[in-house]
């Protein structure tokens, strides 16, 4: 089936739709930042975007390339120090949604951004935690946006950087973690949500033109589909033009570096 949007576009649009207007959102750089800024231009003009570098209520006209770009500070309601962001605003319980990316995740949405292989003799040393361990536990809810493949959706993580539902069921609640945890994982193929009982990620919405076979082939465990699994609404004309305009203006502002966002 031929479509007039890319898999990356439907991923970003689907992720943006998840952010409700007025939500206080702690935003990771990259895909989450793109989705959150798209949402702000569409249905969520009053979403408050917080970046870990200190800007609260950032309203960048183009996407930031780094987590501490000047445009975030210039357009924010307030800019506070990094300790204050983590202590008062995140740990203080002011954040509704933590919007994260991931290098690897497992079926219970535990996230690894630390190492591939043995911790002390890593095959690949990844950048590490950043703000994610505390965002994933202190934000009231968590959204994850990530491209789906056998490299990113793995059976077993080499390191849990940020807690999802741990071993599933009520394991997360039993630790006393304040936040409810992941509510959805949005990929370039589908949307997955944790099962209410087991907390295992279940496909609840398949993007147009994507087969169940392809989703299985790109998941490192035997992935389940929910009984009421449906097709993702394709991006509207407005969603697509708004996203493309945002990316084009970002590329124009940052030069060729704009594609990195």
């Amino acid at each position: 089936m031929k479509s007039d949007f890319t898999s990356e576009e439907i991923m970003t649009v689907s992720a943006a739709r998840m952010l409700r207007n007025g939500a206080i959102c702690f935003v990771g750089i990259g895909l989450p930042s793109t989705a959150a800024n798209l949402a702000r231009r569409l249905h969520a003009p009053d979403a408050v975007l917080i970046y870990e570098s200190g800007p609260i209520g950032a309203k960048p006209a183009v996407l930031p390339l780094s987590i501490g770009d000047g445009i975030l500070a210039e357009t924010a309601d307030s800019v506070v120090s990094t300790p204050e962001i983590f202590r008062y605003w995140l740990q203080g319980g002011r954040v509704d949604i933590g919007f994260l990316g991931a290098a690897q995740l497992d079926r219970f949405v535990n996230i690894n951004t630390t190492v591939i292989g043995d911790y002390f003799r890593p095959k690949v040393r990844l950048p590490g935690a950043g703000g994610a361990p505390e965002i994933s536990t202190s934000a009231k809810e968590v959204l994850v946006v990530v491209k789906q493949s056998r490299r990113s959706f793995v059976e077993k993580l080499d390191f849990i950087t940020s807690a999802g539902f741990l071993s599933g069921g009520d394991a997360r609640e039993r630790t006393g973690i304040p936040g409810k945890g992941p509510v959805a994982v949005i990929t370039d193929l589908c949307i997955l949500r944790p099962d209410r009982q087991t907390r295992e990620l279940t496909v609840t919405s398949v993007h147009p033109g994507i087969t169940g076979e392809r989703i299985r082939a790109n998941t490192g465990w035997e992935v389940r589909f929910s009984d009421d699994c449906r097709m993702t609404e394709p991006p509207t004309g407005l969603e697509l033009t708004t996203l493309r305009d945002l990316l084009a203006r970002t590329a124009a502002a940052h030069g060729s570096a704009g594609v990195a966002a």
Partner: peptide, 30 residues
């Protein structure tokens, strides 16, 4: 290796002449 929240807290503790930082962090992680 630390998390951002940890290191930010650990600098605050250092500035406050305290031996350690305390935070609600790392729960469930490796």
């Amino acid at each position: 290796e630390r998390s951002h929240s940890d290191l930010a807290n650990a600098y605050v503790a250092g500035a406050a002449n305290l031996p350690f930082a305390v935070l609600r962090g790392y729960v469930g992680s490796s």
